[in-house]
């Protein structure tokens, strides 16, 4: 095999790996744990799915505040960014929480934190899936 052909193969391999990493990150963001599942890391996938799912279910059950994209200030937008980190679970939050938020009690306030944590945790998991796919982490 010539050097040019080998070089081309290496570039194509690197491009494929980068595409797979991007796919893992986007999939992991959309459905918690999917980024690891497509890399056959079943334990990590199940842990991400269950932990993010549990935080969303408890947070919405406690009637935490779900931020929308039409926030009036920087904190609202930051809250939306955190909540949207849950991917498809963001819409699940809205489905579970039919009565709307109630932050007049401590429960609602805790629920808001649970929902934000679920989103940030999922973003972290998606980033981890990306790094694993790139071969930078085990």
């Amino acid at each position: 095999m010539s050097e040019n052909a080998m070089g081309g193969e290496l570039v194509s391999c690197e491009t494929r790996r980068r595409m797979l990493a991007l796919l893992a990150a986007v999939a992991g963001w959309l459905v918690p744990g999917l980024g690891h599942a497509i890399q056959r890391m079943w334990g990590r996938a199940a842990a991400c799915f269950l932990c993010v799912g549990m935080l969303v279910a408890v947070g919405a059950g406690m009637r935490g505040r779900i931020f929308s994209q039409y926030g009036s200030d920087a904190f609202d937008r930051l809250g939306f960014f955190a909540d949207a980190g849950s991917g498809s679970f963001y819409f699940l939050m809205r489905t579970i929480e039919k009565d709307g938020p109630d932050v007049s009690k401590a429960d609602g306030d805790y629920g808001t934190r649970f929902l934000a944590t679920a989103g940030v945790l999922n973003l972290l998991a998606a980033l981890h899936a990306y790094e694993v796919a790139r071969g930078r982490k085990a």
Binding site: R44, A47, C48, C51, V52, M54, L55, T117, L121, A125
Partner: peptide, 14 residues
């Protein structure tokens, strides 16, 4: 307790 459990499990696995 619930919060600590969820975060610990996720960090442990990742």
């Amino acid at each position: 307790l619930l919060f600590a459990l969820a975060i610990s499990v996720a960090f442990g696995f990742l």
